[in-house]
Computed example of a mutant assay.
Amino acid sequence: MSRSLNWNASDYLRVGLIVAVPAVFALISEYFLSSGNLFALMQNFALVGLVALGLSLTMVVGEFDLSVASMVAVGGLILAKTGVDSAYIGVLCAVVFGLVVGLINALLVIRLKVSSLVSTLGVMILLSGFGYWIADGNVVPYFNFDAADALDAQIFYLLSPRINITIGAFFILYLVLKFTRLGRDLYATGSHRQAATMSGANTSLSLFFAFACSGSFAALAGALISISLATGSPTLGDGLLIQAASAAILGGVSLGGGVGKIHNIAIGVLILAALNNGLSLLGVSSAVSLLINGSVLAFVVIMNGSLSEFITQKMKKTASA
């Protein structure tokens, strides 16, 4: 009971949504709980989850990486260009490129004191142009179908190697944030950077780590989805920034920094994936789908604010009565 009292209203809301959203669609559509549809839902989790995970880390340290969507597209194109003989080499090249760009983003914030919104906006534009230059304005095919079959092979109905990679990334970062000094420094950096520096926290390392993860995870997501789709495209990441940011906020990550739990981010991604999957099954138009997504997100944001504190206090008083 004492552990449950540590939850706030937004935590209960998050759990309620992850139960209610699939339950509603399961009642409306007989296909929602089919193995094929649930596998497709998890495949979407694998893509958005990696991008949201890296973006969330930059939000935890009080910054924001606008370049993740463009990085997804460039990561896919690098895979298609360099992974002709070996998918492993293509993925490695994409991840290294994403890592380098992430470190550059961090360097701009740390050394030049440039706002991450400004610097990553510039990097986003540069990456977009770089992607169109690589592709020469066209879609780049990738003919390693064996790699695609292996990457998306179903494991126990709901999993695949691509999904397992995303789950593994969530698990590793969960351990880092919960049990290491670096994890504590990440939260301290986002809470109050100057005070964190004065107290001995390595804020520079925290920023480098967050942006490096953001860049490399986005590039990895792009490379993996390009293998699955057998193509790379400069427009591959369109819409992913909004999805990733929405999933992070649904997961309780604060735009002000210093707040965010890895398992809640995973829940946020799953809520968004289930919602969009169910709406797609029902044939809902993109405009209505955006409206519903925005309404859910707005409600969660409100619940994460002062209303959450008010409801939480009421719940504690009721429990202690």
Score class of each variant (00 low, 15 high):
265 I>C: 04
81 K>W: 15
165 I>Y: 02
296 V>Y: 02
69 A>Q: 14
295 S>C: 11
245 A>M: 15
51 V>F: 04
197 T>W: 09
123 V>S: 12
315 M>I: 09
224 L>G: 00
184 R>G: 02
24 V>E: 01
301 V>D: 04
177 L>F: 15
107 L>F: 11
290 L>H: 02
84 V>P: 01
100 V>I: 15
319 A>C: 09
256 G>S: 14
54 G>Q: 06
207 L>N: 03
277 N>Y: 03
267 I>L: 15
38 L>E: 14
206 S>W: 14
198 M>D: 09
219 A>K: 04
182 L>M: 14
101 V>N: 03
228 S>W: 00
280 S>M: 12
63 E>D: 09
321 A>S: 15
303 M>K: 09
263 H>L: 12
91 V>P: 00
314 K>S: 13
159 L>R: 04
46 A>T: 01
312 T>S: 10
129 G>W: 00
116 S>W: 00
12 Y>L: 11
216 S>N: 02
44 N>C: 01
229 L>V: 06
102 G>A: 08
300 V>N: 03
140 V>I: 11
266 A>G: 14
301 V>Q: 15
255 L>G: 12
284 V>F: 06
168 G>D: 01
254 S>G: 10
229 L>G: 06
247 A>F: 06
72 V>A: 02
68 V>N: 10
198 M>H: 15
4 S>V: 12
10 S>P: 01
281 L>W: 03
200 G>T: 10
172 I>V: 11
242 I>H: 05
17 L>R: 02
115 S>D: 11
154 Q>G: 02
312 T>V: 06
4 S>G: 05
57 L>D: 00
140 V>T: 12
81 K>Y: 11
74 V>P: 04
243 Q>G: 09
209 F>R: 01
312 T>N: 03
310 F>L: 09
127 L>F: 03
239 G>E: 10
251 G>I: 14
99 L>K: 00
39 F>K: 05
11 D>H: 15
2 S>F: 10
304 N>I: 13
251 G>R: 08
146 D>Y: 14
232 G>C: 06
113 K>H: 15
122 G>I: 00
318 T>Q: 06
203 T>H: 08
313 Q>L: 13
131 G>S: 05
210 A>C: 05
267 I>A: 10
248 A>P: 02
259 V>G: 05
211 F>M: 10
60 V>H: 04
61 V>E: 00
26 A>L: 10
152 D>Y: 05
284 V>S: 11
18 I>L: 11
249 I>C: 11
15 V>N: 07
139 V>D: 06
65 D>W: 13
55 L>T: 02
226 S>G: 03
164 N>E: 15
254 S>N: 07
297 L>V: 07
69 A>S: 15
302 I>K: 14
298 A>H: 11
296 V>G: 06
245 A>P: 07
320 S>Y: 13
291 L>R: 12
89 I>Y: 06
78 I>H: 01
87 A>P: 00
202 N>D: 15
90 G>V: 06
281 L>M: 14
237 G>C: 03
207 L>G: 01
157 Y>F: 15
